[in-house]
């Protein structure tokens, strides 16, 4: 069947993505750690404006977020690109493969757009705008070691983004070890040309960015831009609550996916023309955890509880267990 090359392409893309994923996810987690360290809280609704207080961490987090959304020219793009290419190539196959490819494409692209929503919300709510609480306003910058770690990973993201063709070799070796030489050759053959073109395109993109930035400087002509407050319609007393919240940012999407998310919304019932107090809160519990993992865990725990009589705290019996296990192993090996 002529499908092996496609499968090799898609699988190789997945492996490449796993590799790159490690790099940018690590960077993002480190960024989260830097925020937690600096502001003392990891709650998005309590943060904001941290870009002014920890500029380098903010820059690197945005870079990591861009990589996580698989945006060119960062490293997240190459792997997803190959998976997409595999799915598109599969469109020329038999009908059931086409349906599978259709499903894969729809899910992949929707997930990609959702990722963009998620990461722009995360980066925006945490680092941009005005601080929403005192904790955020008083956040301190992270130390040079923290910054160094993030910089290292960020540099790796950028380099592996531009140098994706060089990563073909390790990935195809891994494929060969698992599936045989044929797969290695299929993968490197199919992936090489597009990835090389991509690197050329990334370089072109970088060049265009540089040209436009220079042109902008030319337009500014050495004039100093004026500074002012964000447009607040001329209101005399703006406050930090007047910026978009993190939850509000994703509200249209969470409302659409409500049947899947099963979010609990405690909506205030504002009755009467002159209401008193009202408050709103929402809670999103993990549906998969509640309905899939939790029952299984509960059952397993129940089963394990039956054997809790083994744990009675007497050291002598624990030593006896070890001796008994060793004797059993000895007998088995004889």
């Amino acid at each position: 069947m002529g499908l092996y090359p496609l499968a090799a392409l898609a699988f190789g893309g997945a492996l490449l993505h796993v590799l790159n994923h490690a790099l940018f996810k690590g960077l993002l987690f480190m960024g989260a750690g830097a925020v937690l360290h600096g502001a003392g809280t990891a709650e998005m609704e309590a943060l904001g404006g941290l870009s002014k207080r920890m500029p380098r961490a903010a820059f690197l987090f945005v870079l990591g977020a861009a990589a996580a959304c698989a945006l060119p020219p960062f490293n997240g793009f190459a792997g997803e690109f190959l998976i997409y290419l595999g799915a598109f190539s599969a469109l020329n196959g038999p009908a059931n493969i086409v349906l599978a490819a259709l499903l894969a494409l729809a899910v992949l692209s929707a997930a990609g757009a959702l990722a963009l929503a998620v990461f722009s919300k995360a980066a925006g709510a945490v680092f941009l705008g005005e601080p929403r609480t005192q904790a955020a306003a008083g956040a301190h910058n992270c130390g040079p070691l923290m910054n160094a770690g993030m910089t290292l990973l960020a540099a790796a993201c950028v380099v592996s983004g531009f140098a994706a063709p060089f990563l073909i070799l390790p990935v195809s070796t891994a494929l060969g070890a698992a599936f045989g030489l044929r797969t290695t050759l299929d993968f490197s053959g199919a992936a090489a040309t597009p990835l090389i073109y991509l690197t050329a395109a990334f370089l072109a993109l970088a060049a265009i960015v540089w040209v436009l930035a220079e042109k902008r400087r030319f337009f500014l002509g050495g004039r100093q831009p004026a500074a002012g407050p964000t447009w607040d319609c001329g209101y005399a007393a703006p406050s930090a609550r007047m910026q978009y919240g993190a939850s509000s940012f994703s509200q249209p999407l969470t409302a659409f996916f409500q049947p899947l998310l099963r979010k609990t919304l405690n909506i205030p019932v504002i009755a009467g023309y002159f209401p008193g107090k009202a408050s709103f809160s929402s809670e999103a519990r993990s549906v998969v955890f509640d309905h899939l993992y939790a029952p299984v865990i509960v059952r397993l725990r129940g089963l394990a509880f039956r054997f809790s009589w083994l744990q009675h705290g007497r050291l002598q019996f624990y030593i006896l267990y070890i001796v008994a296990a060793l004797m059993a192993l000895l007998l088995w090996k004889l």
Binding site: A117, S120, G124, G129, Y244, F249, P252
Partner: peptide, 21 residues
């Protein structure tokens, strides 16, 4: 989102929402 204005946050929220579809 950088401006910290609710208008622009609203526009950004709508933009990413429609991209998903």
């Amino acid at each position: 989102l950088d401006t910290g204005s609710s208008f622009e946050g609203m526009g950004a929220s709508r933009e990413v929402q429609f991209a998903v579809f």
